[in-house]
Each structure stands twice: as structure tokens, then as C-alpha cells.
Amino acid sequence: MHSFHTILFLALYLFFSFCSHLPARETDIEQLKADIASLQEALKRHATETYIVIDTAHNRLQVWHNNQMIREATCATGSGKVLLHPGASARWQFYTPLGIRTILHKVTDPIWAKPLWAFVENGEEPTVLPWEFRRLDRTTLGAYALKLGDGYEIHGTLYPTLLGRHITHGCIRLNDEDLAFVYRSLQVGDRVYIY
């Protein structure tokens, strides 16, 4: 009886050892495929349907939908310039911020309330009151603006020949057609990935 158990144990041991060296079974492969599909689904829940990708190194803007690029455009991004206020009381650096942002507002016919640096840059006397007429500009930003927070926006341009260059004060400029497409395609809350 004792030897029977020993033989049985050895037989089982040999059987399982043999099984462990067998090639993958169909069921293993199917299980792995099911795991992968489930993980991909979980990953999709974190991803967004429509989003913008901005490559500041090459001044390219892409609109993606369901992980497919549906539009690519030439844009203009921050120059990297540093501007000092006379007397060095203020300092501005005109970089497009890298990282992940969200579209906070969509605006048609945006009015640009010129900040202080716009006056300093042109050597003009800055206005004192924020609602002064000289501060308000109805043409520079184009037909639409998508606000990304901290004063950064995707907007139009009066100088389409300068697209493709590092020329802006940090905002992202597009030509009229691309801007209209972006405005129509993206919703408030959609992500903007800037690198």
C-alpha cells in the first residue's frame, strides 16, 4: 500500500512536470487575450475621445479622435523671449506651458484685453484702468478662442505667414480654417497635451 502511494506520487509528479514544459495551450492564449482586452478597456476609461496634441518643438497641432489623428495644422507657439519692465519692476517670459491642460471656455469673436506687457513691449504708456478703450483689441485673436487657463489660449492670427515659428507670447496661434475646425471639434473639458 505504501509503495502504491509512492508510485502514484511519482507518477503525478512526472505528469505535472511534463505538463509544465508543454507548449502554451489554446486556453492559456485565450485567457491572455481576454486579460489584454479587459486591460485595454480599463485604459480606455482613462483616455479621452477627442483631444489636441501640440508639438512645440516643431509647431504642429494635431486633433485626435478615438486614437486617430483627424487633423494636423501648423501653429505658432511661445518664443521664449524675456521682457523686462523698465526699472525691472516686472519680468515676463513668453513660453508656451508644457504639460496637460483642459479647455475651460470657448469664445466666439474674442476681445483681447491687452495685458501690461503688450504696452511695455511696444514702448507705449500702459493704461491704468482695465476697461480703457486702448486696452481692448477686437481683431488680433481672430474669430474664435479656446481658453486654457492662466491667460493661455488657442486663437487666430493676423499674421498667418508667421505660423510654424516660435513667435508668440505663449498662446497657440492657428490660421482661420484650422481654428474653425478646432473650435467645432473640441468641447469644453477636452484635454490639450502640450510637449
Binding site: 507548449p23 502554451a24 492564449i29 491572455l32 485595454q40 480599463a42 485604459l43
Partner: peptide, 25 residues
Amino acid sequence: THVSGQDKIVLQNYREALVRELDQV
């Protein structure tokens, strides 16, 4: 059977990558 075993390792690697990506996200 050999190709099947190789496929299993490939799939295991992709599954592991997805686990790591999900963790990263």
C-alpha cells in the same frame, strides 16, 4: 506548438505592459 509558446510570451509581455501602463495612468 513552438510558435504557440512564443505567442504566449509575447501576449504575457503585452499584458504586463498594460498592467504597468494602467498603474502609471
